[in-house]
Design a protein around this nucleic acid. Sequence first.
DNA 1: TATTACAAAATGTGATCACAAAAAATAAAC
DNA 2: GTTTATTTTTTGTGATCACATTTTGTAATA
Lengths: 220, 220
Amino acid sequence: MFSKVPQRNPSVRVNQWVYSSLCQLILDGEFVPGVSITLRGIADSLEVSPMPVREAVTRLISEGALDVSEHNRISVSVMNQSKFDEILYARLQLEPKIASQSLKLIDRKKIKQLDEIDKQLDLYLETGNIEGYIKYNRLFHFGIYQSANSPVIFPMINSLWLQFSPFMRVVAGIVGTNTIHDYHKAALNAIIGQNHKALYDAIHNDISEGMGLLNDSIVN
Amino acid sequence: MFSKVPQRNPSVRVNQWVYSSLCQLILDGEFVPGVSITLRGIADSLEVSPMPVREAVTRLISEGALDVSEHNRISVSVMNQSKFDEILYARLQLEPKIASQSLKLIDRKKIKQLDEIDKQLDLYLETGNIEGYIKYNRLFHFGIYQSANSPVIFPMINSLWLQFSPFMRVVAGIVGTNTIHDYHKAALNAIIGQNHKALYDAIHNDISEGMGLLNDSIVN
DNA sequence: TATTACAAAATGTGATCACAAAAAATAAAC
DNA sequence: GTTTATTTTTTGTGATCACATTTTGTAATA
């Protein structure tokens, strides 16, 4: 049923594969906010037994990506104003800090990767490719964050992205790509120049402006 | 096996009871860092089948309270310097903010509760009762945070406490209660006076000083 | 057409079994 | 006594079944 699920690798456990597959689907915006999810439905779609799905879904619920509604039914989380405000606050407190923390660990090879991601991203922006933009924007941010080697805050950031991604996908489809202006170039220059404050500010501004575009689309 | 587990309530599901029981045991410091955990062992101790334990443990792993070591063995998370630094940073960014956010929602009845909690806490400090201190310190903090009605940041704070609680219990047993000085009185006065900044600062100072006592005891 | 009553299917939860891999325990050899 | 080899037990994982509850589908009634 799901079109773009990563291929099964026999060396990786089924539960982990299911979890990362669901993560990717959520982050890519394949899950529409509010839509109902069933364990057996996902199990059939991924062609696995319900058991590893239960484990993955339990995790995603605890990370806020999925919601347990009345009568223990599972659904994709819906955005509201207070959730959005807190996600924005937490992102602004955690992501610039981790970016800055990763600064000294980013080598030349990584910089080249980030540069290529950003070039691809600009291409998607020009052609109005929302899916491409969302995916490569995430690759850019997490490309930086992953270098930080952060044991506590990185999982928290991951959880935050899982929470707003379904909402972002819907909204981005409405506002389109032409109003988006990111601070990736500033971030890249800051990385190259090893300027902590400039990188911190670039990520901060990127989040502020990006989330600002989404704010108007919240319905309670 | 576990002595102080909350009583089973037939109206609440087994998985939720197991999860909250394990949470309480962890927060109260009953789980020693590094100790191995087995699904069947916990299931036998709580006199339930392994199934709901699997669910609870999966959640606790994703919240950072438990760790998956090599060969998929489960153990209580061990503290190290980088984890500690990030937990401290995240607590300082999130907890004062949520406390401040809860300020206008705390009514007279809640203030009375907090005051009684703090009185009991002082008693435990005088008599050197570590377990009592840890429990009532948590009751005080979460008594405030819960009033904030926070959908995103509150769960993050909960996860942070689950991560450092096992470590704190061990260290607190070493340093003792006589060196502890909290800012709960300042926090209470700030709440009564509806002073946002004073409450923010009180919680900030409380975390800084409390965690400062723990910092020296980290072994890598 | 709209509403109600009933039957059928679906859903999360809990329990149990099977299995491969890893620990732990025991026996054998030097 | 110490090390090596072998057996036994334990452990997480995945699959399957049973069950109460809820939802959905269908037919009957007005």
